[in-house]
Amino acid sequence: MKNAIAIAKKELNIYFATPIAYVMFTLFVVIGSYFFLRLLGSYEQASLMYMRFNSPEMMNRLNFQDAIFRNLFGNLGVILIFIIPFLTMRLVAEEKRQKTMELLYTTPITPGEIVWGKYLAAILILVCTLALTLLYPVLVQLVAKDQTGVEWRSIFLGYAGLFLLGAAYMALGLFISALTESQVVAALITFVVLLMTWIIGWTAQETEGSMREVVTYLSSVSHLDSFSRGTLDLKDLVYFLSICALGLFATHRAIEAHRWS
């Protein structure tokens, strides 16, 4: 465990010594803010419209969670597909290219500790990325003082969902990074794989029966929806956790295999 923390510290040191983490943070916040502002705009329009038609029933139904955050979390989940490949590409590939893997192999640490350390660093970067967007609910809360404000419980469940989605993506990215010596190849393949897990959900509308269920289950972003609605579905939790476990296990294997080759 101590060794894993040492590895994680080193990874974080490199993340922040190079521009990559800052660039991805900026990208995430800029694109995220764009979606947030648009959703806020449409919320405003809707509330104005309901007021004009004087329909208190509709006004009651309008709430921040459904009108803004549920969609926002879905959007943020999709943006993660675009930034996570760049956050995981370096993790193992660069160690192989620079031959620093040899250093790790000749010091008394196990491949398991290498994997955990690297994953821990990736998770902390993910937490930083998501924490930056906490500004949105805080802003809404500040502006909506006189109303009931945001439902923090649902917001945090939404973040938990985003975190799990990101953690699953990170695990896949880490594994793909362990397969190659080239950061570019790692980023590209990770991006394609993550994109596939999103796109596959689109076909759900065109398929029927059990096929539809399978496709929906495979689609990563669809599992986010229960969280962003403010509910906790065990099925979705299992989905994310099993992808994390699979990714980490495969990374462990890949690192062991690299040593034997």
Partner: peptide, 13 residues
């Protein structure tokens, strides 16, 4: 203590 052919250093640190 092992020094490989190419020093195993992290160039960003």
């Amino acid at each position: 203590g092992y020094l490989p052919e190419n020093p195993p250093v992290y160039t960003d640190m």
